[in-house]
Design a protein around this nucleic acid. Structure first.
Lengths: 349, 349
DNA sequence: TGTGTAGATGAAAGCGCTGTCAATGGTCCG
DNA sequence: CGGACCATTGACAGCGCTTTCATCTACACA
């Protein structure tokens, strides 16, 4: 008995169900996809057979035959980062009800891995693809264009989008955070960041721009690691070691800010009296920390949601491309308890 | 010109590459999969053609033809929860180097969604499947058994595993956390939980068991929501409202513990002097909070890693099943600053 | 009673790839 | 110099499904 090629032993197929129900394979297929086309009686017979045999449709074959995979690809640099939780949730909120599967690839912030991930996802023929960031490799960009599917670059803005671009100005956001501290009267402002992605670096550029306007000296401590709470403490320690005179600090991410806050508590540094802290992204928990942490709220849910809805419109609708292809969703400064005027100013009157 | 069935317009296929390189399609396929079988000269020609045309292999077709999808399915209840970050990282660490794709489905703790997710993943014919928890529906279990692939249930233990079972006793872990507080001398111990999954509930069972041994009254506040930092504050508020006399609290997850800690800081409750707090899972950040948070460390990386390695052995190896199918990976009590003897005891001498 | 029509069903082809096996050509050795 | 043998390469069928199109039935109407 020859091994039947690529067949998986014992796997129930459409034909098996058809035989069991005494109908043709096409009919079974129709019962599963367009039941209204089939007589109720046959429909019931087929459904009974499906149930009895425990039939599970082979999506691979289905996708191959129909050229519709009912799947979109999403590539994110991290799952750990609180940012991408809401981002992915938004995409799920849009696509799951539409019976479209969301295929998530995680590059873990490893450079070079994004290209691999993009090519890989493309090989699964998603009907659209959503990317975080705009810094894809030339090969990746070319492949994405060639795929002829909607491509959405999110999280930041670019002058040369591949297709659709939904984001915010990370530079302006970094500027706004710093400017908030400057406006409170701070002049010795530190910056902690884990610039493992380009967006983080762009925010630091905004910080520099704001400081330059006030002739202040930048005091940056950066390390190429994924940002996490514990890192915030280490970076603050480093900052205080090099520039003990700082009165405020802008953290590239809220978990760094939280770590910095803990470090202050440990050292008896009062926040915001002795040191103001502002974070970035307004992650879960920043609002209920003690003191609550000022931050820049970024529209990550909104960005992903808009991306999802535009994609759905394109692949479900008449196929027409939307008129507007680029969207700046902005950001919002959230002032909480962790930022205040520097003590020297407050004490003056 | 008739629309060519399920063909995607303009998509480069193996045949296109073959034509371009002046060889047959099989040869191209071989260059991509087993280059050593092809003459260097042809190999180069094919590779040039691949590059020039920007060819991306259709994994769907490949999987269908070869009956090997090089993919494993993973179903988790949450991506937000810090627990599953490390869990997924472990799986990636094992499978990415082996060129096996990890297909992640997120049920978002929605009951009923797991069954759907399992059937869905099964329709993509993964070579193995990894599940969080042991409480699958009968239909799901039947389908999993019928699929004839390795199935690993993780995170908890069961007497009736589907196949492989790698976990820890959530009950014992909950017991250990509570017992730690009892051993310190606490007798009025509260419990905060978000028992949205059964494991959380099982931990609460352990809490009850420990209290019973010391004839203490349970004081439980629970709410069916995904646990997050802000929830910890709300639950603690509720607990203190109902039982102001508590001297210690066991939180079902570290983010609840963190939220509770913040709430204490806000209210001027000293931790651990006035209130001891122990969390669960030993998530990132618990070690550097101020005070640092005692917790139960669960081997989520280890569980997933072992699951991955066993799967790899089975599908890559001789196909033999391992001898041992169930593993209890235990847990570890991590004592930090947030737990101490109750004040009334400490003041005695 | 014959014909037209709509709806339901099935037969056949093909999606893009891989496994098998046959064909080809070159090499080695007697 | 001929035959055996090995390494390459290609032809072909088929993976499980969907699409298209032909067929068939039942019913309404003239």
């Amino acid at each position: 008995m020859p091994k039947p090629l690529g067949r998986i032993a014992g796997r129930i197929t459409l034909d098996d169900v058809a035989a069991q129900a005494g109908v043709s394979a096409v009919t079974v297929s129709r019962v599963l996809r367009k039941p209204e086309m089939v007589t109720p009686e046959l429909r019931d017979r087929v459904r009974a057979a499906v149930k009895q045999l425990g039939y599970i449709p082979n999506q691979l074959a289905s996708a191959l035959a129909s050229a519709r995979t009912a799947r979109i690809g999403v590539i994110v640099p991290s799952l750990t980062n609180g940012v991408f939780n809401e981002y992915l949730r938004a995409l799920h909120d849009v696509f799951v009800p539409a019976d479209i599967q969301v295929l998530v690839m995680n590059t873990q912030y490893m450079p070079g891995r994004e290209e691999k991930a993009i090519l890989n996802v493309l090989g699964q023929f998603p009907e659209a693809i959503v990317l975080a960031g705009v810094g894809q490799t030339p090969l990746a960009k070319r492949s994405l264009r060639q795929a002829g599917i909607p491509v959405v670059q999110t999280m930041e803005l670019t002058d040369t989008p591949i297709d659709i671009n939904i984001g915010l100005s990370q530079r302006l956001a970094g500027y706004a955070a710093t400017r908030h501290l400057l406006d409170l009267g701070h002049r010795r402002i530190g910056q902690l960041s884990a610039p493992i992605d380009s967006r983080s670096q762009t925010r630091v550029d905004g910080y520099h721009a704001a400081l330059a306007e006030f002739d202040c000296t930048p005091m940056v401590v950066a390390v190429d690691l994924p940002s996490k709470v514990s890192l915030g403490g280490h970076l603050l320690t480093e900052l205080l070691g090099r520039w003990p005179e700082v009165t405020a600090v802008f953290c590239g991410n809220d978990n760094l800010a939280l770590g910095a806050l803990f470090e202050c508590q440990r050292r008896g540094i009062r926040v915001p009296d002795d040191l103001s802290i502002i974070g970035f992204n307004d992650l879960e928990g920043s609002d209920c920390a003690c003191p609550s942490i000022s931050s820049i709220a970024t529209p990550r849910y909104g960005m992903a949601r808009l991306a999802g809805e535009m994609i759905l419109d394109i692949i479900r609708g008449t196929g027409k491309r939307p008129k507007q292809l680029q969207f700046d969703l902005g950001f919002q400064l959230i002032v909480r308890e962790s930022t205040g005027a520097p003590l020297e100013l407050a004490q003056k009157p």
